[in-house]
């Protein structure tokens, strides 16, 4: 066998392979950057300062910060309920009914997403104080709801559009009332879309500090607001880091659970996940 007839061997490092390796390296570099601030907080939360050590910082989260966590969960839960009540019927009507000026209306309902938090905060602070005379927890809940409901609307609208109208027609032809059709056919079938909306709203509202800073009632301090206030007044204390890490872990857990159950495709159109 002459050398000329032996097939050329694949080079160990072809340019194609190098490109592949570089691609993966780039992705991971960016991912590390994403997670770096979190990892920094994590390492700091486990650090020592003033005697309290390691996991002791986390004891503080559920001890002295317990109230703040509780408020965060409560505010977030109530906000999600209001978001649902606003978005489910609106998304249904926008997709199924002939609404004059549909595009414009949808854009107007999406707009809260694009108003800077500080502007929403200031405008609500002033109207709550001078017009609506609200100074209870509900002011905060409503503020969270108006800022987050567009996030819930989009995945529900997409899910409704992906649901053939035939299922509803079949249900009605089989004798179901409108309400029976909504409850037994429409809601279950758009469930994943609704859940995607719930998840998005959850992670945004649960971690919201800016609008909260403007409109929170004096006695009420949610966990993210607590983090914000402590960072400003108390520097970078490990216990503060522990609270921030806890908040992010809870949020991350919600994301992971959702991904495991429903997958990732239900965020189509949200441009967020």
């Amino acid at each position: 066998m002459s050398a000329a007839s032996t097939p050329r061997r694949r080079p160990l490092l072809s340019s194609r392979r190098l490109a592949t390796i570089a691609s993966h390296a780039y992705i991971w570099l960016c991912l590390i950057l994403f997670v770096l601030p979190f990892l920094a907080l994590l390492s700091q939360s486990l650090g020592q300062r003033g005697g309290a050590s390691g996991l002791g910082n986390y004891a503080a989260v559920f001890g002295s910060f317990g109230d703040n966590l509780f408020w965060s969960f409560k505010i977030t839960g109530l906000t999600l309920l209001i978001d649902l009540a606003a978005c489910l019927p609106a998304a249904y009507a926008l997709v199924r009914y002939p609404v004059p000026g549909k595009r414009l209306l949808f854009s107007l309902l999406q707009l809260p997403l694009y108003v800077p938090g500080a502007v929403i905060g200031l405008s609500l602070l002033l109207t709550y104080t001078f017009v609506y005379k609200i100074d209870s927890m509900w002011g905060l809940v409503l503020a969270m709801a108006v800022g987050s409901f567009p996030l819930m609307m989009t995945p529900i609208v997409v899910a409704m559009k992906d649901l053939p109208v035939m299922f509803e027609e079949a249900s009605e032809c089989l004798g179901a009332t409108k309400w029976q059709t909504y409850r037994r056919i429409v809601f279950p079938l758009i469930g994943p879309g609704v859940s995607a909306g719930l998840l998005l709203c959850f992670i945004i509202v649960f971690n919201e500090y800016l609008v909260t800073l403007f409109v929170h009632p004096p006695a009420l301090e949610t966990a993210p607001l607590k983090v914000f206030n402590l960072v400003r007044t108390n520097g970078l204390a490990p216990t503060t880091a522990a609270l921030a890490v806890t908040m992010q872990l809870i949020s991350f857990l919600a994301v992971i659970v959702f991904f495991r159950i429903f997958g990732t495709r239900h965020f189509k159109g949200t441009y967020i996940l």
């Binding site: 994403f34 601030p37 920094a40 907080l41 992670i203 993210p224 970078l236 949020s251 991904f259 996940l273």
Partner: peptide, 22 residues
């Protein structure tokens, strides 16, 4: 990747907080 990408979304506050610590 998508799961890890959500970390920054949890809020500019945590990102800024973590960066200042770094």
């Amino acid at each position: 990747v998508r799961a890890l990408m959500v970390f920054p979304m949890f809020g500019a506050l945590y990102v800024a907080f973590g960066m200042s610590f770094i």
